[in-house]
Write a protein that binds this DNA or RNA. Sequence first.
DNA 1: ATCAAAACTTAGCACTGTCAAGATCGCCCC
DNA 2: GGGGCGATCTTGACAGTGCTAAGTTTTGAT
Lengths: 235, 235
Amino acid sequence: MSTTRTGKAKPSRTKERAKPRYHHGDLRAALVRASVELIARDGVESLSLREAAREAGVSSAAPYHHFATKADLLAAIAADGFVALEASMREAIAGLEDPEAPSPRLQALGRAYVRFAREHPIEFRLMFRGSTSARSPLPKGCDPSASFGLLVDAVERVAETLPPNTIEPQALVLTAWSLVHGAAELVLEGPLATAEGSITIADEQVGATVVSTLGRLLDFALVSKHGARHGRSTT
Amino acid sequence: MSTTRTGKAKPSRTKERAKPRYHHGDLRAALVRASVELIARDGVESLSLREAAREAGVSSAAPYHHFATKADLLAAIAADGFVALEASMREAIAGLEDPEAPSPRLQALGRAYVRFAREHPIEFRLMFRGSTSARSPLPKGCDPSASFGLLVDAVERVAETLPPNTIEPQALVLTAWSLVHGAAELVLEGPLATAEGSITIADEQVGATVVSTLGRLLDFALVSKHGARHGRSTT
DNA sequence: ATCAAAACTTAGCACTGTCAAGATCGCCCC
DNA sequence: GGGGCGATCTTGACAGTGCTAAGTTTTGAT
């Protein structure tokens, strides 16, 4: 009786006239949006499905027609994050002058990884708190290894340019990934600020700093055994 | 009437005859212990103060005489973790043949950092999910920068052995810390398993791998500008 | 022995995740 | 068009939670 179908009667501030197809229009996406906002405001621990539902203008039980569980909602956010991360990384490569040059390619990916964490902290955290935390396994169509693969591939390209028997490619993959992931986590969770005088590097520069340091070290390895053959051996 | 003061009447399995000074003996510590166990079993998200209290054999409201808030309990666990981490790192140094040799010292610390994360995952996660998550700021006497300082100091010692103008010490600190922290997080949260064929390194070796890779790269930097002056310049 | 404070209990509030049952709504097929 | 049927949403309820207020014991110091 009081609920009109236009959605005008409810105080949903964002995009109230989208395109109401069903009762709500697209509750699933609305819930994800609302949840991300709420998490941004109060932290993931104090997110409640009921409040998200309230925010979306539906009843408390409505979400359960789209997510079997609160953990599934969080998994959906994480899944979104994985596709966004892959997009960001591909973008970073595409923006390169020579996308095939191994070292710049790797460095661009690394910076993109850390930047993504800073720009999408909520998603990032949910993406990498899988086994723990109240997040279900990732849903059907989601494949995190797409993003990981980009990184792995880029590292292996760099590894090929190194003199043989220098460093096993696998170890380098692990090192590079740990590096950017750790940088992202440290920036996100803020222990850098705790190490008072020791580190005065701004959050926005942590990614670039770390990545270029690794690049410089790799250059040394390149140069140490034979002259300066750091061209692109794209074979 | 049914509760004897000896503590025998309650089904607390661990150390039931410690030294009952007050009602319980040492509820605060018991709650911490029980909480860690419960988190290990069901994850931190589904920890409830009430269940921890139950496990400790006290009423639901008892914990509030020791922790103002559930988040404070978690902070206490994190605080314990920080002193344990510092101990582990000091131990790692002490076990060294020559604790003053810069590179071995740094590598030992790095391995200890990652090993600690693997051996105390619950503490580690709470330690580094401060700003986010439902954890209060660390309590009074806790100083995380003690552990950080060890690492920072060790990195700076290594930096001093590098030829000047190679890499800024700060960047190296950030790099080393990110490296070990990232390795720890990747091992703990398990995305390594997701990157299927790419990485076949066992969890227990991730720390050593990553640390020795960095060490090797630093060696290249050492060797590149002048011969092989990688002695211990303990000045 | 006394007594204030510390440690604990009981009872209760507001809230949560989740479920079962019913009410609507939109769409497809005749 | 009308009938139906499944997807979508609501109402109502249950058990469990964090936390508080008000009492009750116990403790250690005086």
